[in-house]
Structures are given as structure tokens and as C-alpha cells.
Amino acid sequence: MLELRGITAGYDRRAPVVRDVSLTLAAGESVGLLGPSGCGKSTLARVAALLHRPDAGTVVVDGTEARGWRHRAPRAQRTAFGVVFQQPRLSADPRLRLRDLIAEPLRATGAPDGIGELATAVGLSDDLLARRPHQVSDGQLQRACLARALALRPRWLVCDEMTAMLDASTTAALVSVVEDYRRENGAGLLAVGHDPVLLGRWCDRVVRWTDLAPGSGPTGGGQAGRGM
């Protein structure tokens, strides 16, 4: 179970973009978080994945309360999450070949280095795996980013606008990779997005940002603050 309790977070303590928001995901459940851009839903997703320390509130991951964020979170706790972001170009280290990009979490944790199955799952050929990010399309790069997120077999997936830049076929392909993985591993999913049709089709349940956080309206500060 993933519990977010009374989260207040942002990039400026005086003007948090998320105010006192609570959300609970049952084990293996997929929840779509629907809201306009800049509303703070991405910030909440980063808090959930232990990548952004909230100003207030607690995150409980499978019964254990998070005590630290980013590098201060115990490795076992932060690798419980696989994250995929909106812009594959910014999510990939430009110097790494796709093969190394996908294998990076395995190497960082000393896990056996084998990405064959992952690459097959996301449909990347050997030729593409040998390329660097600037030599592939957005869709191909996002496939690699998804494979990287799955490399450590996370119990939770956090997909922040994963398909916003992609065409319909690549979107459907990536969603089916996520769903295959979840079916096999029983992982839970927090999918953040702005497309009600997509999230409705993809997730067990869709939560509207406006229902979740009646207090915090769009401030425009959430996205701009991260140098997008």
C-alpha cells in the first residue's frame, strides 16, 4: 500500500503548489491522477516516489514510513519505485547509449547485468540499443526510459505524463508494456496525466486533482520551478 497523508509541498515554502493532499493506493492498484498542467500533480508524484521532500505530511510505502528523500532515502525504499517522466530527452543522460541507460540501475545496485528481456519487452532492437539519445526518436527514447524504470522490478510505478509527447500507437504500446509488467509482478501504478480518456482506459480508478486538493489551484509555479 502507498499512502500519502496531508502532503504539503512545493519549491517555495511560502507558496506551496500542493497543500494538504492525501491519497492512498492499494497494493497492485492503478490510479490515474488527472489535472491541468501546472496544478502540482507532478510535484505530488515526485513526493510519492521519494524524489521531493514535502514541507509537511508523511509518505508510507508498504507499511514503512519514509524518513528521508532522494539520496537520504534507504536504497531499498527508493528502488521500490520506477519512474518515467514526460520528456524523454531530459530524462536520459545524453552521453549514455540506450543499452547503458537501461542497465544503469542494475549496475548502480550491483545486480546482474542483463537487459535482453527488458529490451525485448519495450521492443528495442540491438541496433537501437547501440545508439545514443540524440540518434533516436522521442518514442524510442521513452521506450528505453520505461525499460530503465522496470529494470529493478519495482513494486510501484510512477508515470508522470509518460505519453504526453508521443503518438497514439507508441502511447498504446508503452501502456501495454506497463500493464504486462503489472500483471506479472503485481505492481501498483500512479499515472499522472491530463487526458481523461487515456487515464480512464488505463487505470482502475481516476482521481481528479480538483477533488483531491480543493484548496490548491493552478499557480503556474509547479512546472516553471523545475526548469522545464
Binding site: T171, S176, R201
Partner: peptide, 20 residues
């Protein structure tokens, strides 16, 4: 295939990827 991939339709991707 492109239209069928839409979430409001059958939401199934076209297999494979476009050629380089």
C-alpha cells in the same frame, strides 16, 4: 492502426516500430 491505437477506440498498438 493509428486510429485503433487511440484510447477511445481499441487502444491496441501497431506491432513493431517504424523503420529507420
Amino acid at each position: 492502426g493509428l486510429l485503433d491505437a487511440l484510447p477511445e477506440r481499441s487502444f491496441t498498438p501497431i506491432p513493431g516500430m517504424p523503420p529507420e
